[in-house]
């Protein structure tokens, strides 16, 4: 096992553990936004798509990398925007003044 692979593996395992720790604390209310937020994070695959695009010299690679870049950007942009829309709704809202005491029993 090469040192590079070993360090990549270390990073991989630690990141998984961090993911478990971070997520298990989120209340159910936020699970859908969270899922959507996590969904946008794997849009990081755009970075990888850019790598293959600049190295694309034949038609097959160029087509594949164009689709990859477009797909990944769709994932990133759509993911973050839709998550933000969901979370926007949780904000503030002038809480309607509650009646002090219920009228009757």
């Amino acid at each position: 096992m090469s040192p590079e692979l070993l360090s990549a593996l270390t990073v991989f395992v630690l990141a998984i553990l961090v993911g478990f720790a971070v997520i298990s604390k989120v209340p159910a209310t936020l699970h859908t936004p969270l899922m959507s937020g996590a969904n946008s994070i794997h849009g990081i695959v755009l970075v990888g798509s850019m790598f293959i695009a600049v190295e694309a010299h034949d038609l097959a690679s160029q087509v594949l990398s164009l689709i990859a870049v477009a797909f990944a950007t769709l994932n990133v942009v759509g993911g973050y925007v839709v998550t933000d829309r969901m979370l926007q709704m949780f904000r503030k809202k002038p809480v309607t003044p509650k009646p002090t005491e219920p009228a009757e029993g």
């Binding site: 590079e4 998984i16 997520i23 298990s24 996590a38 990081i44």
Partner: peptide
Amino acid sequence: MAGFVLGNDVLIIAGALVGASGAIL
């Protein structure tokens, strides 16, 4: 896995984070 293929840490970290979060959820 794409991170392993390309030897790119940021793909590995973000991918593993989401892999773990999705599994818990």
